[in-house]
Amino acid sequence: MSLLKISNLHAGYGQMSILKGVDMALEAGEIGVIVGPNGAGKSTTLKAIFGMLNITEGSIEFDGEDITGIRSEALAAHRIAFVPQENNVFHTLTVHENLEMGAYIRRDDFSRVMDHVYEIFPPLKEKRRQPAGELSGGQRQMVAFGRALMIEPKLILLDEPTAGLSPMFMSQIFDRVIAINKTGVTVAMVEQNAKQALAIAHKGFVLANGANSFTDTGRNLLENPEVAKSFLGG
């Protein structure tokens, strides 16, 4: 049984339909990467999973349970975390305070989880008393990742985590995605840097015009001439 299964998903904003029959399945412990041109419905897919917009048809199952239409604030209890592309840290709070905010639903001692986040992101431990707004873009992204990990998610949704970052930080973010996945967290990620993202993906989903164009392993998609020509720039 798949941890995440999306079937014939139709969704959009208000009366505007963006997704027109998206299918997607991830097993526990996999990295799934969604790529495609602008306007294909990539970020919309993540937002639909996270209960942020109107679903008109189809279903979303998580860990054997139908979560179609469940609102964002309730999904943390299902151990699903979402890292949006923008506005994903509290700029005036310290790094440590940002991580504490990520644990808002917990009523137990989460110091062990905090230590684990600092192990995955060593730069954050060094800057834990610094306001997040003073950090570089790549470091702020690490704060956003770390905050999402504070609920010990089974699934983490990442919306273009390398957007606007330098090549050095881009590489570091992909390395951290792999590190997070190796701890057992399933990852669903939207990425504009398609070649780099598919290189670390167990499964890849190429969307165009709100529907699946190709679905395969990351490696097979990279080696597919039609995918390369139409979606990977070569």
Rank of each mutant, 00 (worst) to 15 (best):
V187G: 00
Q139W: 05
D159S: 08
D175A: 07
G51P: 03
P84A: 10
F90G: 02
I31G: 02
A228Q: 15
L75N: 09
G218W: 06
L232G: 09
T45H: 14
A144M: 10
S2I: 08
L26Y: 04
I120M: 10
T68F: 09
K195G: 11
F62V: 08
D66P: 15
M150E: 03
K127Q: 12
F121E: 00
M101R: 11
V89F: 03
K42E: 03
A188W: 02
F82C: 04
A81F: 06
A201S: 03
G146T: 08
G32E: 06
E100Y: 08
L26V: 00
Q15S: 14
F145C: 13
Y118M: 02
M114H: 07
G210N: 11
I60P: 09
A148F: 10
V33M: 00
G21L: 05
R128V: 10
S136K: 10
L19E: 03
A81R: 01
H91V: 11
N54G: 05
A197G: 09
A76S: 15
L149Q: 01
Y118A: 07
T68S: 08
T45W: 09
G233S: 13
F145M: 12
A163S: 14
V177H: 02
F50N: 13
Q141T: 09
A208D: 14
A201D: 07
A28V: 08
L135A: 01
H96L: 15
M16R: 15
L158N: 08
A228P: 01
G146M: 08
N98G: 12
I200N: 02
T92P: 11
L3C: 04
E191S: 13
S7E: 14
A11K: 02
M150V: 03
E134C: 06
S17H: 11
N181F: 04
Q130V: 15
N193Q: 12
T217W: 03
V227W: 02
L221T: 10
E86D: 10
L232I: 10
H96C: 05
I178D: 09
T162P: 06
M189S: 02
D109Y: 09
K42L: 01
L155Q: 00
G51D: 07
L9N: 06
S7K: 15
N87M: 12
E223G: 06
L155I: 04
T215G: 00
I105E: 03
K47S: 12
R129E: 14
H202Y: 07
D23P: 05
I151T: 05
D66T: 12
I67E: 13
S43C: 02
D175E: 13
M101N: 10
E160G: 06
S2T: 13
P167F: 06
V177K: 12
A211P: 02
T92K: 13
F231H: 14
V33Q: 00
A76P: 00
V143W: 03
N209C: 10
M168R: 15
I151K: 05
N209W: 03
N224T: 11
R176D: 14
V185R: 02
D63K: 13
P123H: 10
H78C: 07
G204A: 12
A25W: 05
G234P: 00
A148L: 03
V143R: 05
R71F: 07
D115K: 14
F121R: 07
N212R: 04
Q15E: 12
V33R: 02
E100C: 12
K182D: 14
L4A: 01
M16L: 15
A179G: 01
F82H: 13
A40G: 08
Q85F: 10
Y13R: 14
E97P: 07
N181A: 08
P84Q: 12
